[in-house]
Design a binder for these strands. Structure first.
Length: 556
RNA sequence: GGCGCGUUCGUCUAGGGGUCUAGGACACUGGCCUCUCACGCCGGUAACACGGGUUCGAAUCCCGUACGCGCUACCA
C-alpha cells in the first residue's frame, strides 16, 4: 500500500522545509573530537549537515566534543578546523567564531551537564548505581550466557539517602545510570531510514555520569542539542542503536525531540566496513588505494615534507590539501557517497549542491570509498579551470620545492604559465607540476631514465648519429630563427624527410636526450619550452654521455 | 550471543507494480586519434542475494533465509 507521492514527500520531510517561519529554520551541528586529524567520513557527515542548513537557510554549528581529551586542545583541533576552512565548509556558530550558545567546547559546559544529571535524578529518570564493576560484569556475562539482552538488576540502585549511606558504608562508589523503561516500544521516525522500532526493555541502563563526576557522551550530546536548539540530528548510522537512550534523555529533560537522520557509513574500498584511519596498511593492499597514496606520497617527497602514514593518508583530509586536490572535487565526490540527484547528474557545483540537497534522497546502504572515482572528479574539476587558474595553484608547489624563487618573478610566472599550458590535462592535482623537473634543472644535472636512454638512444640504430646531425642543424639556425612549436615541427619534419625517415625515428631519441624521460608533453612543445640554447646543450651532453660509456654492461 | 540496520553491474548509484530485453558514472576492456604519456571520441563486458507469497503483472509490496555491517563500555 503506497501513499500518493506528494503526500509521501510531506510525511518524510517535516513542515520545516515548506512553510516554516524563520525562527524555525533548522539548526544542525557537527561535533568532532579534537583528534588531530579530519577523517574523510567525518567530512561527508559534516557536508550533509552543512548542505542541509544552507539549503533551508538554517544554521550549521561546529561544537567541540572534548570531554575526553587530555592532549593539547589547540594542537588537536587546528587540523580539523583548518580542514573545514580549506574545504569551504563554514560554520555559523561554534569553535573560534562563538555565538549565542557559547561556549561551544564541551569541556567548558560541565555545569550544564551536572544540572541535567540532577534533573534526571530528581525526575526518577536516572539513579545512583553502587554496583562494583565486577558485579555489573557478572550480570552482563550471565545475560549473555542466557542469550538475552543485558538489563541491569538495579540491586545496587540507591533509592533513598539511607540506601546511599548503607552502600557507602560498604566502601562503594556510585555512577549515575539511566532508569530505562522496561516496557513498550521505542519508535524513531528517521528521515533516511523510516520508522525504526525497538523494545525499551532491551535497553541497558547506560551510565551518564562516572563515579568521578565526569559525564559521558550521550548525556553531554543531548544536553547540548537541547540547549543549542538543534532541530535535526544528522549523523552516521553507527549512532542509530544509541538513539533510544538519547530519546529517553530528551524526554527526561522535558525537551522536544529533534528529527533524526542516520546516514550510511563511508566504508573501506571494496568493502562495507567503516573506513578507519588505523587500517592504512590494510587499505594499501588495495591497488587503487595504494596508487592514490603513492601519488600523494610522490608529491610530498618532492616537497621534502616529513610525512608519516599516521597523518598523511587518503583517509585524512590533509592528504588532499597537500597533494593539491580541489576542495570542490572532493565535496562533489563525497556528496555522491550516499546521495544522488537523479539517474544522470554527477557534476554539481556547490551552489547546485545547496539548491538540490535533500535528506530524502540519501541512500540507506553503506557506500565504499572509491579512490579512482574521486580522482576522476578531481580531473574533471581541474580540466574546467583556465590556464591562469591552474598557474596560481601550481606556483606555490614550485616555490616550496625550491625550483623557483618565492615570490615568483614575472619571468618565472611566464615560464611556468607556458609549461602549464603545454601540460594541459596532464596536471591532475596541483602537485603534479613537480613531475616536470626537466624544465627546472640545470642542463648538466638532467637525469636520464636508464631504460629509456638505452632503448631510445644507445640501442636504437642510428640514433646517436641522428642526434648529432640534429644538434648541428639547430646550431646552424640563424640567431633570429623562430624556435616555437610550429617552426620546430617544420624543422624536424624536413629533417627526417631529407633522410627518407619517419618522424617516429627521431622523436623518441630527442625526447629522452632533452627531457631525460620517455613520456610527457609533445616533443615540439618541450623543445620550444626549453629554448634553443638549452636544447643544444642537452643534445651535446647526451652525446658526451654516450661516448663516455660506449659499451654498457648487458642488462641483467 | 542479543538487538538494530542493510543487500541493483567490481565500485557509486537511478529505480516508488507494467515505459526494465534494468539507465548513468568510475573502473575494466576493444577500437579511433597520435611522436610518447595524458586528454578526447566511438564501442563492449558486467547487476536486481536466495526462497516463498500477494498480483493479470514484482527490481519495486509482504514473509522467511543467507550474507554483510553497526551497537551491545564508568569510548565517542
Amino acid at each position: 500500500m503506497r501513499t500518493p507521492s506528494r503526500l509521501h514527500a510531506t510525511e518524510k520531510s517535516p513542515a520545516v522545509t515548506l512553510s516554516a517561519p524563520p525562527s524555525l529554520a533548522p539548526r544542525v551541528r557537527f561535533a568532532p573530537s579534537p583528534t588531530g586529524y579530519l577523517h574523510i567520513g567525518g567530512v561527508r557527515t559534516a557536508l550533509f549537515n552543512w548542505l542541509f542548513a544552507r539549503h533551508h537557510g538554517g544554521k550549521f554549528i561546529l561544537r567541540v566534543d572534548d570531554t575526553d581529551t587530555q592532549r593539547n586542545l589547540a594542537d588537536a583541533l587546528a587540523p580539523i578546523l583548518d580542514g573545514f576552512r580549506w574545504l569551504g565548509i563554514d560554520w555559523d556558530e561554534g569553535a573560534e567564531v562563538g555565538g549565542p550558545h557559547a561556549p561551544y567546547y564541551q569541556s567548558e559546559r560541565l555545569a550544564l551537564y551536572q544540572a541535567a544529571v540532577e534533573k534526571l535524578l530528581a525526575g526518577g529518570f536516572a539513579y545512583r548505581d553502587y554496583a562494583r564493576p565486577e558485579e555489573t560484569q557478572a550480570e552482563r556475562a550471565e545475560a549473555e550466557a542466557a542469550k538475552r539482552p543485558y538489563v541491569a538488576s538495579r540491586r545496587w540502585a540507591a533509592e533513598s539517602p539511607a540506601d546511599r549511606a548503607r552502600f557507602e558504608a560498604e566502601g562503594r562508589t556510585s555512577a549515575v545510570r539511566l532508569r530505562m523503561p522496561r516496557e513498550g516500544v521505542c519508535r524513531i521516525d528517521d528521515i533516511v531510514r523510516g520508522t525504526v522500532e525497538s523494545e525499551w526493555a532491551a535497553e541497558a541502563d547506560h551510565v551518564i555520569q562516572r563515579a568521578d563526576g565526569t559525564c559521558l557522551y550521550h548525556l553531554a550530546s543531548v544536553v547540548d542539542d537541547v540547549e543549542m536548539g538543534i532541530t535535526h540530528v544528522i549523523r552516521a548510522e553507527e549512532h542509530l542503536p544509541n538513539t533510544p537512550r538519547q530519546i529517553f534523555i530528551f524526554e527526561g529533560l522535558g525537551a522536544p525531540l529533534p528529527r533524526f537522520a542516520h546516514l550510511p557509513v563511508v566504508a573501506e574500498p571494496g568493502s562495507r566496513v567503516k573506513l578507519s584511519k588505523r587500517k592504512l596498511d590494510k587499505y594499501l593492499k588495495n591497488p587503487e588505494f595504494a596508487e592514490l597514496y603513492q601519488h600523494g606520497r610522490r608529491i610530498a617527497d618532492r616537497l621534502r615534507l616529513e610525512v608519516s602514514p599516521e597523518t598523511f593518508n587518503p583517509v585524512i583530509t590533509d592528504f588532499y590539501r597537500i597533494a593539491g586536490f580541489l576542495p570542490e572535487a572532493i565535496l562533489n565526490y563525497l556528496l555522491l557517497l550516499g546521495w544522488s540527484l537523479d539517474d544522470k547528474t554527477e557534476m554539481l557545483a556547490l551552489p547546485e549542491q545547496i539548491a538540490h540537497f535533500s535528506l530524502e534522497r540519501v541512500g540507506k546502504s553503506a557506500a565504499s570509498f572509491d579512490p579512482k572515482k574521486l580522482l576522476s572528479f578531481q580531473e574533471r574539476y581541474m580540466q574546467a579551470l583556465s590556464v591562469d587558474e591552474r598557474l596560481a595553484l601550481v606556483l606555490p608547489y614550485l616555490e616550496q620545492a625550491g625550483w623557483i624563487a618565492a615570490p615568483a618573478s614575472a619571468a618565472d610566472r611566464e615560464k611556468v604559465r607556458s609549461i602549464v599550458a603545454a601540460a594541459a590535462d596532464r596536471i591532475k592535482v596541483s602537485g603534479d607540476i613537480l613531475d616536470y623537473d626537466e624544465f627546472f634543472v640545470a642542463d648538466e644535472a638532467l637525469v636520464y631514465d636508464p631504460k629509456a636512454f638505452d632503448k631510445r638512444i644507445r640501442s636504437a640504430a642510428g640514433a646517436p648519429e641522428l642526434l648529432a646531425a640534429m644538434h648541428d642543424e639547430i646550431a646552424a639556425l640563424p640567431a633570429d630563427a623562430a624556435f616555437d612549436a610550429a617552426a620546430l615541427e617544420k624543422l624536424l619534419t624536413a629533417f627526417v624527410a631529407a633522410r627518407g625517415l619517419g618522424l617516429g625515428v627521431i622523436v623518441h631519441a630527442v625526447r629522452v636526450a632533452v627531457a631525460g624521460k620517455p613520456v610527457g608533453f609533445g616533443l615540439f612543445d618541450i623543445l620550444a619550452l626549453l629554448g634553443r640554447e638549452r636544447v643544444l646543450a642537452r643534445l651535446a651532453r647526451t652525446l658526451r654521455v654516450l661516448e663516455a660509456t660506449p659499451n654498457p654492461p648487458e642488462a641483467s
